[in-house]
Design a protein around this nucleic acid. Structure first.
Lengths: 156, 156
DNA sequence: CCTTTGACTTGAAGTACTTGAAGTTCCTAG
DNA sequence: CTAGGAACTTCAAGTACTTCAAGTCAAAGG
């Protein structure tokens, strides 16, 4: 299937192409538009199909990054509209991002803990498979110690 | 806050501890119980609070592994109620956990990357607020480079 | 003893998509 | 030109959690 572009200036993309380029499914692109995370995309004159240009793609790339950091749709909407405002919104942008940073730091901690726990469990089952009951008990204790350590550290 | 375990044999965990160890939020643990992905968890005599033991934790670990591989709740329920979960050999459990460990290593990487990205954006908006256009442009470039990395690793 | 603080409980509502149905429109091949 | 299939459209419903509200329970301080 060879696709021919009719536009002379700038590129035009179908929703499928935009999805492939941003890494977001087409359904999500439509969803983001309906909830206002991105502005309305222009439509084909006769077809009513969405036509994405480079600018739309840029904005979508940006939103894809925010989504990847775990930002909520409401915050993304705020963030995008603030971004278009420029300097006066900088303070708010910084606040939004600082909150996001804190969340990510917490997330990193949680992942590290889980990682340690899973490694311990792997060792445990190796010991079980080997019939090493001394080591089995030892590792079981370590897991309990890890659990004890986590009491009080896992606020949220 | 000193936590005293009343059980003489085996460990008892609160929902918060179970959540931290399995990596699933407490709300998800409750949800999994209500929809039958895991069996009913025993409750504190007077409190009615959920009390997780080692066996519950193990079962939850497997379910967490299955969920991480993208298995639907319906399939997980089928899998568990068919009793295939309890019968699993140590070898298979080790394999599942090893895969989980790999995923966690990846997850840690992704979180670190997102963290860097957000910090960069914070710097960016600080530069914007300060009117430092040279630094603004520099950081914008850096963010774009990181964004490319981020969207590349976020595929699934 | 009483109050406060914090973790827990349930159930209902909200969130962020995803999927499915039913109906155009585009494109290629006959 | 016309038929057929792929890709698009909207809207409604489904999914997998998540958050909120209202209330219970337990330990610590006054």
């Amino acid at each position: 299937m060879v696709r021919v572009r009719t536009r002379t200036a700038g590129q035009a993309y179908t929703i499928r192409e935009a999805a492939a380029l941003t890494g977001l499914p087409a359904s999500t692109l439509r969803y983001y538009e309906t909830v206002g995370v991105i502005g309305p995309v222009s439509r084909g004159e006769t077809s009513g199909h969405r036509v994405y240009d480079e600018e739309d793609l840029d904005q979508l790339m940006w939103v894809a990054c925010l989504a990847a950091t775990g930002m909520s749709v409401a915050d993304m909407r705020t963030y995008v509209t603030n971004g278009q405002l420029g300097v006066q919104a900088a303070q708010e942008q910084i606040q939004l991002l600082t909150e996001q940073e804190r969340r990510l730091a917490l997330e990193a901690e949680r992942v590290a803990l889980r990682h340690r726990y899973v490694r311990l469990k792997i060792d445990y089952w190796h010991a079980v498979a080997a019939g090493d009951s001394a080591r089995t008990q030892q590792l079981s204790k370590q897991a309990a110690a890890l659990a004890a350590e986590l009491t009080g550290t896992t606020q949220q």
